[in-house]
């Protein structure tokens, strides 16, 4: 079970002795097990802060964050957290395979070669096992980064604008790929993004945020059944929802 609960969470960042910024204020949020939630908002609205709090990389100023009733640090300690960033964060001196072995080595487990080979195939990088990050394209690096997040069969997957640095065409293609990959794993997932199409296409629920202080201004239950494919994006309803949410993002 992994239900994520944020209760009355606020987060303040101090800039200097006099000034501080309220990144989140009185945030209440529940994410069910197996749910794919997208946090949508402009940059600086505190959506990455939520991700950091859930990952246990940061502590809330007030309120509590729990995953299955436990603080996120415990999930960290059990290595049940998969995380991928906009910056691929791959180790440049390791091959694709070596980068996927890294989580096993950090956890002190023997690397599961079969599992790694399966993940490489899942993200469509068969044949690139011994390539180094510098030899891969941006999209391919993000694939490795996502495969790495899935290495230890995490209970919770956190994606911080994973395709933010990609061009529109590659990005759209990667959305389709992520949809396919997620369909196979169905892990509780939080995706942080500022692209409306990406949020609607991938998530079960989209939370629209506004900044200073960060709060949720809108919530959308995505009506499209899974598995979703390119056709989903061509539906009239899809375009309507995109327009609708885009409008609510405008200040």
């Amino acid at each position: 079970m992994s239900t994520i609960e944020l209760k009355d969470v606020s987060k303040e960042f101090r800039i200097n002795r006099e000034r501080s910024v309220l990144a989140l204020s009185a945030m209440d949020l529940t994410i069910r097990e197996g749910e794919f939630v997208a946090l949508l908002g402009p940059s600086g609205c505190g959506k990455s802060t939520i991700l950091h709090l859930v990952a246990g990389l940061d502590e809330p100023s007030t309120g509590t964050v729990t995953v299955d009733g436990l603080p996120p640090r415990q999930l960290q300690a059990k290595q049940q957290l998969g995380i991928a960033f906009q910056e691929h964060a791959l180790l440049p001196w390791r091959t694709v395979e070596g980068n996927l072995e890294l989580p096993f080595q950090i956890a002190g487990r023997t690397s599961d070669r079969e599992h790694i080979a399966g993940l490489i195939e899942l993200v469509g990088l068969k044949g690139f096992e011994s390539a180094r990050p510098s030899q891969l394209s941006g999209g391919m690096r993000q694939r490795v980064s996502i495969a790495r997040a899935l290495c230890l069969n995490p209970k919770l997957l956190l994606l911080d604008e994973p395709f933010g640095a990609l061009d529109a065409v590659t990005r759209r293609f990667m959305n389709l790929e992520l949809q396919r990959i997620w369909q196979e794993k169905q892990i509780t997932t939080i995706l942080v993004t500022h692209t409306v199409e990406e949020a609607i296409f991938l998530a079960d629920r989209v939370l629209v945020m506004s900044g200073r202080p960060g709060r949720i201004i809108r919530e959308l239950q995505v009506p499209f059944p899974r598995p979703r494919a390119v056709e989903t994006m061509r539906q009239e309803l899809f375009h309507q929802l995109v327009d609708d949410l885009t409008l609510s993002l405008e200040p």
Binding site: G56, Q76, I83, F85, A89, P103, I106
Partner: peptide, 11 residues
């Protein structure tokens, strides 16, 4: 970039 956070997330 971000490797510190990755390592922290993996404890």
């Amino acid at each position: 970039q971000r490797s510190q956070e990755l390592f922290a997330a993996l404890h």
